[in-house]
């Protein structure tokens, strides 16, 4: 009797120790998961606290409505609009290039290409998504802009057109890849239904597959816009760093991201208004991209829930 009892208690003791270790591990894992929340919290916290002194010096009204941004001049002006205008213009040019080309590529790969071609092109697209943007900046400044100057000699060395086009080329693989995934996710039964009615490939793609994948395709566009807005190196290298309230693509202008880079490259005086201003600009950038990302993910989720 006593012998059985002691083995039982030994086993129990082992169980308790094992359970303790198991709990410990679970806690450690959970802490790692918590990091994701902490990072988001950290971003918001730092952006807000570092820019509070800035907004004590500059009114939010001036910040949001003034069209002059001259932090380095004698008379300092802090109106974010010129930076927003630069960001919007360059992203707009990029989308004009990327949306048509990306969509055509996606439709072709998903509905027209042979299995072999698709299996070759798809990995290359994924590969291109990983090309560092500083390299695209090199192309914009030293290759595409000189080329554009041959057609339009008045184009300044720093302009929005060149980087916009290069950014577009950079985004094409992203849109193509995400939109193609969305179209592939449309069930084959839907295509068969269309082909069974005597539809051609193009008719099926245009009138059945694309509408069915629409929210997935739009999510690709939205996430692409967010990428364009957040893109830094191409514009910092090739668009110039002069804040300029203009939507004219052949002028030079700075984006929000380019401004942050230009300040960071100079001598940062910790606590100075120049230092604080990049966090204020960062808030605007963060809000713009965050809302687009949430919208994009929500759209994509709606799409995946359906299929």
């Amino acid at each position: 009797m006593s012998k059985t009892k002691s083995t039982v208690s030994k086993a129990l003791a082992k169980n308790i120790r094992r359970n303790f270790v198991e709990r410990l591990i679970e806690w450690a894992l959970m802490l790692s998961g918590l990091i994701a929340i902490l990072i988001t919290f950290g971003i918001v916290f730092i952006l807000v606290t570092e820019s509070i002194p800035f907004f004590e010096a500059v009114s939010i009204k001036e910040f949001l409505t003034s069209t002059i941004w001259t932090p380095n001049f004698e008379i300092k002006n802090y109106g974010i609009l010129p930076l927003v205008a630069g960001t919007v213009t360059i992203t707009g040019i990029a989308l004009l290039v990327a949306i048509p080309l990306g969509t055509i590529t996606a439709v072709y790969l998903s509905e027209f290409a042979s299995h072999k071609l698709r299996e070759t092109v798809k990995p290359i697209l994924e590969l291109l998504v990983g090309v560092p943007t500083v390299v695209f900046g090199y192309f914009a400044l030293l290759l595409v802009t000189p080329l554009l100057q041959k057609i339009y000699p008045d184009l300044p060395t720093f302009n929005m057109l060149g980087p916009g086009i290069v950014m577009g080329i950079m985004i094409v693989p992203y849109i193509a890849s995400v939109a193609e995934d969305a179209m592939r996710a449309v069930p084959m039964a839907m295509r068969e239904g269309s082909y069974a009615m005597g539809a051609t490939r193009f008719q099926t793609a245009k009138t059945v597959v694309m509408p069915a994948a629409l929210s997935g395709i739009i999510a690709a566009y939205i996430l692409a816009i967010s990428r364009g807005i957040g893109e830094t190196m191409i514009v910092a290298i090739a668009a110039g760093q002069q804040p300029n309230f203009t939507f004219n693509p052949v002028e030079s202008a700075a984006t929000i991201t380019a401004y942050i880079v230009s300040v960071a490259l100079g001598d940062l005086e910790h606590g100075g208004i120049g230092y604080q201003s990049i966090f204020a600009a960062g808030i605007v950038l963060f809000i713009m991209t965050l809302s687009l990302n949430i919208l994009g993910q929500w759209t994509r989720k709606k799409f995946t829930e359906r299929y």
Binding site: I43, I46, V261, L285, F286, L290, G296, Q297
Partner: peptide, 12 residues
């Protein structure tokens, strides 16, 4: 959302 935050924000 973190996957979509522009890299420069992480810099800030």
């Amino acid at each position: 959302n973190l996957a979509g935050v522009p890299s420069i924000i992480y810099g800030l």
